[in-house]
Design a protein around this nucleic acid. Structure first.
Lengths: 228, 228
DNA sequence: AATCAATTAAAACGGCTGTTTCAAACGGTG
DNA sequence: CACCGTTTGAAACAGCCGTTTTAATTGATT
């Protein structure tokens, strides 16, 4: 009588527009992404999902478990929205790096303003909660591992794994800034400059060049060669 | 009768431990930094500041204006806690860049865990509100301008201002990742690796080297020189 | 000592929150 | 049709929130 059994619809019909659980998950993701866990209200979520407030308790138990599930739902959706590129054998690592950076920027920045899935994941990265560990293991680490293996290939195995990881973080950091601090970046540079230089394509070319130059795989950005 | 005049103590005694306005400002900064604007409560702030709840309304009007003031207070304090380095004429730009990166990392990461001032500013950068414009103009832009002028000096005026800004963002991005996504970074790399390679000093050396190599001002990180 | 503005204190007020209750509606199954 | 577990709906609950009110206290000035 008092024992509440929480429903789990892990498999089918979870995407249909007449599936209440899916609608709640999607609405919650958007609200949590925009306002954060505290500021988002169950009533707003349920209004957006066109369900009764009691439905959250019925399907998820409470607000916290709804949040956990919506983060999981977000990175699962985003994984298949923007999958990692696949390369045929013999693809030069330089091209792989360029593809990876382009892929990462597209996944982070999106075409116009980024989808709520990314913004929700970003919140979890910036202020980790219980949902973070799964996000890292299932989403972030696989991507980071691919990056490090590309860098390993690129440097012909000269670098140790710690060094590769540090370089990988340099690559990620340059992309991450535009996503996490994009508003401030937009305030620091003139508006037209943002359109000309800071679009995903040119940015991917630039960041790739910057890293390749640092690794000695192409000419430095500045034409003047090392002085000493 | 109903007209409330908000107190402004812009000048003296604002730092004393028996100044209620200063205590509220400090307590609010810590609470906002840890929990964010919505989750932080006026009651908790006032308990921490050992003042009555009515004091917030008396000194600041409402919660929102208290937040704005506490962000201002945070970056004013942080400006004099970690001032920009000053260089004598003739200092080589390579040293200036290394100093700047070290200074930025120290300001962002702090010695142990970063002070609440930085975390509060970070929140404002990630999810800008009304307090962001002033933060950018008074704190971030001056630092960024210095960085760009160092890069200009470093490249002997070969780069256009937009290019300099883009390179500057590459420098900032590599530092910013450790601050904003430090928890996730810590989950991606082994614990001992974090202590060995990811401390402020070694990180500053590495990031400086990475950028100098990219700009052709020192040998690339990988010993193998450009192939083509 | 008396006066008066500045400051502090305690209590209360709506309003909104997450959550729960309980009954009504639904939808297959015998 | 009758049955019964599943799902939905409207309303209410207790609790905390930001803010305000009202009164007491302070502290310097006359």
């Amino acid at each position: 009588m008092a024992s509440i059994s929480i429903q789990k619809t892990g498999s089918v019909a979870s995407e249909g527009h007449d599936d209440p659980r899916g609608r709640i998950l999607s609405a919650a993701g958007q609200e949590f992404a925009e306002k954060g866990f505290e500021a988002a209200t169950i009533r707003d979520i349920c209004t957006l999902a066109t369900v009764n407030v009691a439905a959250v308790n019925y399907y998820f138990g409470d607000k916290h478990r709804l949040y956990i599930e919506s983060v999981r739902h977000a990175h699962e959706e985003r994984s298949q929205q923007v999958p990692l590129p696949e390369w045929v054998d013999g693809t030069p690592p330089v091209k792989k790096l360029r593809d990876f950076v382009g892929n990462m920027l597209q996944r982070m920045l999106g075409f116009d303003h980024p989808p709520w899935q990314v913004r929700l994941m970003l919140r979890e990265i910036l202020h980790p909660t219980d949902a973070c560990r799964e996000l890292v293991e299932d989403y972030i680490r696989p991507h980071f591992t691919v990056l490090c293996s590309i860098l390993d290939e690129l440097t012909d195995g000269e670098m140790s794994p710690p060094e590769l990881r540090r370089i990988g973080l340099s690559v990620v950091g340059q992309c991450f800034l535009y996503r996490a601090a994009g508003d401030v970046v937009g305030m620091l540079i003139p508006p037209n400059e943002k359109k000309n230089l800071h679009n995903p394509v040119d940015l991917a070319d630039y960041i790739t060049s910057f890293c390749l130059a640092a690794l000695g795989q192409q000419n430095p950005l500045s034409v003047e060669v090392a002085r000493k």
